[in-house]
């Protein structure tokens, strides 16, 4: 477990998201999937981004690398803005910001050899074909595949192997930071462990920053240094993995953490959250969580909570922030 100690402030911030909003749909029927999220990823740090389906975590991940246009806010990589991908080639500096997708079967071109696919990372950056081939063989070995795999086609591999090939492909571009969108949830249990270990090993050995988008809380707990919890397009709590897990502050995080099944069979499902996730096209007034919140107060229906420091981490909750504010006064 790497989550015990907070990351030293000396590590440079690689990816900085400020007030990021992502919208879908046409004028008139626009849905704000992500609404004003602040998040940073530093070198050598794994930031877990968790939340239930539809909370906007994947949209945030895609926006962070420039796959979705920002409706508001800014995404910066190494201090420079992340431009949305257009028709032309992505600026070279952004090549060091990469993404690993959920489904390795569809993220690798079925008609090209694994060697060519991995070598792309080198040749698209201006490297020669020979360099690409050498690098591809080396990277495949690094992710635990024989160098002879270069001549094979993607359909000849298992899901776990394919995901490692996909990771090798992004590594060929020498990334400083990458976003992994549910990188292991499409894999079987043994492959999950291999890929999760590979990812955390890369972060540890190469000082890569990783934004790990996942709904699998146990994996995030294993791998992440910090955790951001999303609900309906907002980040409700950000803190070190240790803080968030052992003393969750936001009522949503508390419900989420309490719902994790435990190996002793004592998996509790106590905090029954009434109702479903509201429609993101028509979010509730005030705090977006208030219709389902067990500790809701009158002010929650009108006040939109902004992140405030509570017990050493950022929490967006009026009720939780109140005692802290009182203590400050």
């Amino acid at each position: 477990m790497t989550g015990a100690t907070p990351v030293p402030a000396a590590e440079p911030t690689l990816l900085e998201l400020t007030g990021v909003a992502v919208e879908y749909g046409r004028r008139g029927a626009r849905v704000r999937a992500v609404d004003g999220v602040d998040l940073t990823v530093a070198a050598g740090e794994v930031v877990g981004l968790v939340g239930e389906s539809g909370c906007g975590k994947s949209s945030l991940g895609r926006a962070a690398v420039g796959l979705e246009p920002l409706a508001a806010g800014s995404a910066r990589f190494l201090g420079e803005p992340v431009t949305t991908i257009g028709r032309g080639a992505r600026p070279g500096r952004l090549r060091r910001l990469q993404m690993v997708f959920q489904d390795p079967y569809s993220s690798l071109n079925p008609r090209r050899t694994v060697g060519d696919l991995v070598a792309d990372g080198v040749t698209l950056g201006g490297g020669s074909r020979a360099e690409g081939r050498t690098r591809a063989a080396a990277l495949l070995e690094r992710v635990g595949l024989p160098a002879s795999a270069t001549g094979a086609y993607p359909h000849e591999f298992s899901g776990g192997q394919l995901q490692r090939i996909a990771i090798a492909r992004t590594l060929a571009a020498d990334p400083l930071c990458f976003v992994a969108d549910e990188p292991i949830s499409a894999l079987d249990a043994s492959a999950q462990a291999t890929v999760a270990n590979l990812l955390s090993g890369l972060v540890r050995d190469s000082g890569i920053g990783l934004l790990l988008v996942s709904h699998d809380l146990s994996v995030v707990r294993q791998v992440a240094d910090r955790v951001a919890v999303m609900y309906l397009g907002r980040v409700v709590e950000v803190g070190t993995t240790e803080q968030v897990w052992s003393r969750p502050q936001h009522p949503y995080t508390q419900a989420l953490v309490a719902a994790i099944p435990r190996p002793d069979g004592g998996g509790v499902l106590p905090a029954d959250l009434p109702g479903d996730v509201p429609d993101p096209a028509d979010p509730p007034s005030g705090c977006r969580f208030h219709p389902r919140c067990p500790i809701v107060e009158d002010s929650c229906r009108t006040t939109d909570p902004r992140p405030e420091t509570v017990a050493g981490r950022q929490v967006a909750c009026v009720v939780r922030a109140a005692p802290a504010a009182r203590a400050d006064a």
Binding site: R90, Q98, M99, D103, S107, L108, N109, D120, L124, G125
Partner: peptide, 13 residues
């Protein structure tokens, strides 16, 4: 996704 991942690696459309 395979096109998007190539685009991220710096391939033009």
């Amino acid at each position: 996704q395979y096109v998007v991942s190539s685009r991220l690696l710096g391939a033009s459309g």
